[in-house]
Design a protein around this nucleic acid. Structure first.
Lengths: 125, 125
DNA sequence: AAAACACATGAATAATTGTTCATACGATAA
DNA sequence: TTATCGTATGAACAATTATTCATGTGTTTT
């Protein structure tokens, strides 16, 4: 009975298909890339941030306008804009007292469109 | 000084650009769609699940093999496969004692590819 | 100068969530 | 049948996180 372990890592069960595991293991992207990808999707995994991004698809907006649009406090929006900013998804420019936020990535729309394809496909059954 | 509120929702700041807010408001997708989209991305927002999906890009796999590949317990993998399954992202087939999981959505790859575009673009600066 | 406004931010709280542990289920083997 | 194996799952725990509240910063206005 085989008791192989891959990468000397702890695992409480046997490897059933060693060939498959080895082949897939070689094809896996770098750990760091996968981590970064998960971090990016984590940013998209919140309704408020999704709404902010959709709003910014249409127009650059200041914090107060976004807060009014979404019916949320200025503080909550500001906190979320910070998350979006550190993820490199939005940028801002200051004009007097007002700070205008806009999208800083032209690929986000594509990601969301593909996401909708999945959602809509799911509901056809 | 204007004190408008949109949609009769509470918001602790003034609407500065009423025209922009109204125009963007009309263009926003349905609340439910945005919620579903966030839920989908939430599933992608975990390194373990990202790894599982990448593994399944290459080959269908049983639970033990995935656990060995990722160096994690069978229980942890099984819990995550449950999440992926209820999101409509993976399907399974049973053969005796062994359960084989495989991808159930051909669009996921596109979403991830676009995600990588963002990540790689970000690191060029 | 002080007051008002737009926005940012630290701390606290509540809610969500990933993993572990123990155990149960379903199928095969002895 | 009993034992074993592959998998599923509920409960518990730790860690993360979204919002609120209070307050601070920077800019304009009076």
């Amino acid at each position: 009975m085989k008791k192989d372990r891959l990468n000397a890592e702890f695992c409480n069960c046997n490897v059933i298909h060693e060939d498959v595991v080895n082949r897939v293991s070689e094809k896996m992207p770098e750990e760091e890339k996968l981590y970064d990808l998960a971090e990016l999707f984590k940013v998209f995994g919140d309704t408020t941030r999704i709404k902010i991004i959709y709003a910014l698809f249409e127009s650059e907006m200041c914090v107060c306008d976004i807060a009014a649009l979404l019916g949320m406090t200025q503080s909550a929006i500001s906190h979320q804009l910070r998350v979006l900013k550190s993820a490199g998804l939005v940028k801002y420019k200051r004009e007097g007292k007002i700070v205008y936020y806009s999208l800083d990535d032209e690929h986000v729309k594509n990601i969301f469109d593909q996401g909708f394809v999945h959602i809509n496909h799911k509901y056809m059954y």
